[in-house]
């Protein structure tokens, strides 16, 4: 049964990489059920991330957000800050797609704080870039400028010319 769970997960990932997002979700849901059966929180967390990602490409941003929230909740339980940061970043981007810029900014800020705690300059740069865009969309150019400047500073520091 445990091997079956891993096989479902691998099949889900393979379909995902082939661009078969509906099939991917079918397999990842099977993977999720087996992870729950075993109380395997790490596998459950991975399944939620994979399900969130697949729903982005199915255009179901609302469903993706719910899966990413489950990922976020479990990453905190598992005390995995890198995954927590990634979940916040995914939620920020998903709420941007949902045109809910206030909530997008909330998650990008949470991502920024964790990236700073982890001394992840690339993550911090991405968070600032996203926050600049969110504040432009909210009609707050002064705050957008603050984050754009920070984004420029970090990009120069890490040598990201793009």
């Amino acid at each position: 049964r445990a091997a079956q769970g891993r096989a479902y997960g691998n099949l889900g990932n393979t379909h995902y990489l082939l661009g078969n997002f509906t099939e991917a979700t079918t397999f990842h849901k099977e993977r999720l059920a087996i992870a729950k059966e075993f109380g395997d929180k790490a596998a459950e967390r991975r399944a939620y991330s994979n399900l969130g990602n697949a729903h982005i490409f199915l255009g179901r941003f609302d469903v993706a957000a719910e899966y990413y929230k489950k990922t976020l909740q479990l990453s905190r339980q598992l005390r995995d800050q890198a995954v927590e940061a990634q979940a916040c970043y995914s939620l920020g981007n998903t709420y941007t797609l949902l045109q809910d810029y206030e909530r997008a900014a909330e998650y990008h800020l949470r991502h920024l704080v964790i990236a700073q705690e982890l001394a992840d300059r690339v993550g911090e740069g991405r968070a600032c870039w996203s926050l600049g865009n969110a504040y432009v969309s909210m009609g707050s150019p002064a705050q957008a400028l603050t984050f754009a400047k920070k984004h420029l500073q970090i990009s120069q520091e890490i040598g990201d010319r793009n």
Partner: peptide
């Protein structure tokens, strides 16, 4: 589902490009 109406947001576009190849492996 909802349409990808915000593809002009560079940071989101970049994230989605990375996401296409992002799988949580077993």
């Amino acid at each position: 589902g909802q349409r990808l109406h915000l593809m002009q947001v560079d940071s989101v576009q970049r994230w989605m490009e990375d996401l296409k190849l992002m799988t949580e492996c077993e």
